[in-house]
């Protein structure tokens, strides 16, 4: 399976944020989408999630050579600020989600197994989500998106505001879940991207480009990325 973006463009007023982006993502990989603040990472994700209309271009899934229109459930989108329905408890939210999606979820497990998987503490499970900490909300949001098993998982700066332990847990989880799907992970923190991602993609000047690691060591690779990002400010 491949996820193909073809000449996707988006502008706000006169500002061209995405300029005819053309890119192909491969199954089973985690992509780190690096870009400076305001580069258009969130905009790209919003377009892919059809939250905003792109000006032009298409994107589709390519399964063994046959292109297929993307439907809502193919995409999972974890926003940078965790959003969970505040009036439910974690358990209720999970139950609700499993109830209405029971038919489409493979190897259904018990609620507590799912909580264990995310290491959400037992005493948190029956609290209202509004009283969850930021990190636990984030875990909840991630959990729902992981159970849904979307073909494409978009994560908008998800680990930026988590504490080290939770961030490490999330990283492990994303790694363990990467098979069979495409994970695109936006961040402006480079170490995180280098640590977690199989490919580094730069969003600058409204286009996507891969930064080849080839035979560079980590330090050289970092410098290369920074150089590429810096260019933008003189553009």
């Amino acid at each position: 399976m491949r996820f193909v973006i073809d000449h996707l463009s988006k502008h706000f007023e006169r500002k061209e944020v995405l300029k005819e982006i053309t890119f192909t993502f491969e199954e089973g990989k985690i992509y780190g989408l690096l870009g400076r603040n305001g580069a258009g990472k969130t905009t790209l994700f919003n377009c892919l999630n059809r939250d905003i209309r792109a000006d032009g271009g298409t994107f589709f899934l390519d399964e063994n050579g046959t292109p297929r229109e993307i439907s809502a459930e193919d995409i999972g989108y974890v926003l940078s600020t965790p959003t969970v329905p505040e009036f439910l408890t974690g358990r209720e939210f999970l139950k609700f989600f499993l109830d209405i999606n029971a038919s489409s979820i493979q190897n259904l497990r018990s609620l507590d197994e799912y909580f264990d998987m995310m290491s959400i503490a037992p005493e948190d499970r029956d609290k209202l989500l509004k009283d969850y900490s930021h990190g636990t909300k984030n875990k909840m949001q991630m959990l729902i998106n992981i159970i849904a098993q979307p073909k494409v998982l978009l994560l908008d700066e998800p680990l930026t505001s988590l504490d080290v332990v939770v961030a490490e847990e999330m990283k492990q989880l994303l790694r363990s879940q990467k098979d069979g799907k495409i994970t695109i992970f936006s961040t402006h923190i480079m170490d995180l991207a280098l640590d977690l991602c199989d490919e580094i993609v730069l969003l600058s000047h409204g286009v996507l480009e891969v930064v080849e690691k080839s035979n560079l060591d980590n330090q050289e690779f970092k410098e290369k990325i920074i150089a590429a990002l810096k260019e933008e400010s003189y553009a």
Binding site: N49, A72, E73, D74, I75, G76, Y77, L79, T83, V84, P85, E86, F87, F97, I100, N101, Q141, I144, N145, A148, P150
Partner: peptide
């Protein structure tokens, strides 16, 4: 404020039949 605001960010919630 207390429901759709958060649930609308999940793609399952936006399925037409739901």
């Amino acid at each position: 404020m207390n429901c759709d605001h958060s649930l609308l960010t999940y793609s399952f919630y936006k399925k037409p039949k739901f």
